[in-house]
Design a protein around this nucleic acid. Sequence first.
DNA 1: AAAACGCCGGTTTTT
DNA 2: CCGGCGTTTT
Length: 766
Amino acid sequence: MEELLDDLNDKQKEAVEYLDGPLLILAGAGSGKTRVLTYKMAYLLEKEIVKPWEILAITFTNKAANEMKERVNNLIGEKAEDVWLGTFHSICVRILKREIGILGFSNTFNIFDDLDKDKVIKEIVKNLKIDEKQYPISLLKYEISKAKDNMKDYKKYKKEAMGDFRKEQIADIYEVYQKTLKQNNSIDFDDIIMFTVKIFSENPDILMKYQSKFKYILVDEYQDTNKAQFLLISLISASHGNICVVGDESQSIYGFRGADISNILNFEKEFSNAKIVKLEENYRSTQNILNAANAVIKNNKSKIDKNLWTSNEIGEKIVYKTLDNEYAEVEYIVEKIDEICRKENMTYADFAVLFRTNAQARVLEEVFVKSGTPYRLIGGLKFYSRKEIKDLTSYLKLIQNTSDNIALKRIINEPKRGIGDTALQRLEQIAIEKNISIFDVMQDSDNLVGIRSAGNIIMFRDMINSIIARKDSLKVSDLMKVILKESGYEDMLNEDATKDAENRFENLMEFIGVAMEFETESADNTLADFLDSIALVSDVDKLEEDAEAVTLMTMHSAKGLEFNVVFIVGMEEGLFPSRRSIDEDEACEEERRLCYVAITRAKKKLYITNASKRTLYGSTAYCINSRFIAEIPEELFDDEGKENIEKRKKKSQKYIDKEYVQVEGILEKTGGYFGGIPSKSTSKVTPFGIDVNSFLNNISGTKNVAKNIDNTNKYVVGMSIKHKKFGIGTIQKIDPEDDDLKLEIMFDKYGFKRLMANHTPLEILD
DNA sequence: AAAACGCCGGTTTTT
DNA sequence: CCGGCGTTTT
């Protein structure tokens, strides 16, 4: 064991060995915090200070939890198996399975995902006849979520809302939403934490049980905890104070979803006699990369003094390059990856491309596919939100918990079995009157008298009942196969000969594959466990360690990961930092922390790129450099990058000074908008800048310059042309209109259209 | 019940 | 520009 600790530096060792009460480890990026946590766990177990099941260790993702368990086992043998190690949510679900009865739920409860939440809130808004324009679903969801993060149930929310009509309205929706959840014997993500804390704070006996069970508590990524999570750990550790949290204020990037940075800033106040250990030696990155990261984060008004350093080599300069547009940007990256792989004995797995918003992923994918570069895209289209997956999951959820009306409503007529809206409404009506679930309404055939589709309902109900009877004797994967067969879902897909149906079927097979894997890997593998596990899994969890592919993901998803070569793309004001953050100091500081996270993912090489003109959400805008580029000292960049910075500075100045700018080969006067993105402007503002067209329209005497270059002499009657959307057609008539031409064209497939020549790109076919 | 049309919104996202 | 949705149309 002593030898084991020799692997650690002095500070790390101090953090591992300190066991007298609360400990805050301030761990800079790449300073070995996971190492400290795993060694600490190993140390606690090896020295037999506590038993495995007396340790509660909380990580940010399931992936991190699994890795940690594996690493502890590697250090001291298979002792970590019984440690309670998981995310806040998975740990709390485990607790709720035992304790939720006290809140009036049964422990067969289901977990609502985001889509369920949407659906329910939408329905409530409709029923309460509230204007969806004034109370958008997204806002309601956010409000309710925020309330729960702050431990406000609807009663408390209601009290605080008094006198504020708008809040009162939201409080009403919150109340109905919460009651609906209860009726469905379901809880949402935020309830998982809030309910656990509620049970603990209202029931000293239950709390005491867990306080004496968990003798040591470890929390990773502490800077991203919210108030409810803080309360949870402080309640459990209150009796003994054996709590160790690890975090880095500079990497707090989830403020937008309730993470409360003051948890880490005020740790000393909240936990008396807390000891603080700082880990400031970075083992990951080259000096150049680390210097860049430090220089950027220096611009935040940090509350915590720190000095992250490394004894690694100085390393290569940071490459900074501006490309013409978003396609050129990615093409450049693909070329570079190819070049580095050839020259430097690296493989695709060494690379990551980090972007700010998922909307950027489309171009990345397009270019990667075209160039044949293997990649894996994290996030984006979620497997579990696909229709067919949601459908099968809903069958499983209904079987697990027949109170789940949401699941029932989703699949009662999927596949079509002749149970329409009227019948469903009738059933729902009775369910409300009798205060039972819709499924229970169906169980009593007397309730179905007078409903035309009663026969179909009975068939559906009997089918579900017969599957419920087998749910404990069948493996989950077999249960899924039975459902697909007996519900008619499989037949429905087979009868549909489209590619789409084929895809759906394949997805379902993949889903069954997930279940089979779950059965072999997991000790607890009941249906309930499976449903929990899929509700609580994230995209990053599925990231395989050694896939031979370039990783494409958001900067947020990259937290906690590292790569030899990192490309940060779209370094433009309005995109990164995002347009919505640039007016607010706190939001902008969070963007800067995100930039810090992104830079510190890189071990050996860092590339920063942007586009001089970018099309996003259908409009094209000129871009000016992200402020974060200017925050990196010039001497850290390669020569070309330095030059580029100068060039870009001048160019931005031109935009500001109403000089000239080149647009598709034509010199045009600028409108002088680019000193920053104007918050109030009559011109069309895209999410990240100024729309090129409206920009150019503001140029004196020029109208709509972004049109095609003069087309007026190109066309003759009878010419055959090709249009991007309408395909092939023949020009029938040409009329001059203003300084443009009105073309009347008969398309082969789309029939007759009138188009303006200078506004429509047409390919001449002859 | 499906297709067609029109409107809105589009950071980040766990879990 | 794209997709998701709600509404209208057939």
